[in-house]
């Protein structure tokens, strides 16, 4: 019986900070104020299906996709190397990965601006080799790079935590049976680490698709992403109804993509999945 009591504060918490806000967003997205009266309508969602907003959404998805692929390509080997280190070294290296995330995201992104700008660190460095200054900042590449830099730990850590728990004797068994290293990776290591990979993908993709700070600073406000669009509705236009509808669309999309990923995640026991 006592166990139930323990959960009440959490229930209250979830009600206050999850259920009620969600209901409010849903309410706003389905209503509109016409001549001072609140009416139920689907106009906010209809508005979203104009080409310009679909284009914005598509662009956000593409950028988030690049970012996720980039994180996976860099993050997986990183996690694998980490998992095979000695205990003390491991702790230290994990610390190094975590450390930047303790710093404010704005600060980290501003630092990249200093590195990438025309008279910045990178161009001065290239200047030593006689390479003409190039435009790095305010390009799509800068935005993707900023996202990868900021979200990489979210990819490395879940994969690492799965790899480090993996039973090494399985690899030894595969070696005994004559599998080469590529085969071991394809048939043993990677399938076993799939839950980590999937939760890594989810954890990188979600913030990447909704970011507005990174695209604003490193993209110089040139790229209207869905996160910027939502921010604009709330802070500038004051159209909370359309802003809420955009947020709902985003949430549905994320839910769908997680459901799709979930189909490939057979090993739910490992606890890597969010579902």
């Amino acid at each position: 019986m006592k166990k139930k009591w323990f959960s009440y504060p959490y229930l209250l918490w979830m009600l206050l900070f999850t259920v009620i806000p969600m209901a409010l967003i849903l309410y706003y997205s389905l209503t509109d104020t016409v001549n001072g009266e609140t009416v139920f309508t689907l106009a906010n969602f209809q508005k979203f299906f104009q080409p310009v907003y679909l284009k914005v959404l598509w662009h956000s998805l593409v950028l988030a996709f690049y970012c996720t692929v980039g994180c996976l390509l860099i993050g997986y080997p990183m996690a694998a190397i980490l998992a095979n280190q000695h205990f003390v070294k491991k702790k230290f290296l994990i610390m190094l990965i975590m450390l930047p995330t303790w710093m404010n995201i704005l600060l980290r992104t501003y630092a990249w601006m200093t590195i990438l700008e025309r008279n910045g660190v990178l161009n001065s460095f290239l200047g030593f080799f006689g390479i003409e200054p190039m435009q790095f900042l305010y390009t799509e590449g800068a935005v993707i790079m900023g996202m990868i830099y900021n979200f990489l730990p979210f990819m490395v850590l879940p994969i690492y935590s799965v790899l480090v728990k993996m039973d090494k004797s399985l690899i030894e068994a595969a070696e005994d049976l004559g599998a080469n290293r590529i085969q071991i990776f394809r048939k043993v290591t990677f399938p076993l680490s799939a839950p980590g990979v999937i939760s890594g993908i989810v954890m990188v993709f979600m913030p990447a698709v909704s970011t507005f700070v990174i695209s604003r600073l490193l993209g110089g406000g040139q790229f209207a992403l869905i996160g910027n669009l939502i921010e604009q509705q709330f802070l500038w236009v004051g159209d909370w109804n359309f802003g809420s509808a955009l947020s709902i669309v985003m949430m549905v999309l994320i839910l769908l993509s997680m459901a799709v990923l979930n189909r490939y995640d057979k090993d739910k026991e490992a606890g890597g999945s969010l579902w």
């Binding site: 310009v52 907003y53 209207a224 910027n228 604009q232 004051g238």
Partner: peptide, 16 residues
């Protein structure tokens, strides 16, 4: 009319 400004601005930004 402000929301028209916002739509136009979004189209400018998304034009690339």
């Amino acid at each position: 009319f402000l929301s028209e400004y916002d739509r136009v601005w979004t189209e400018v930004k998304a034009s690339k």
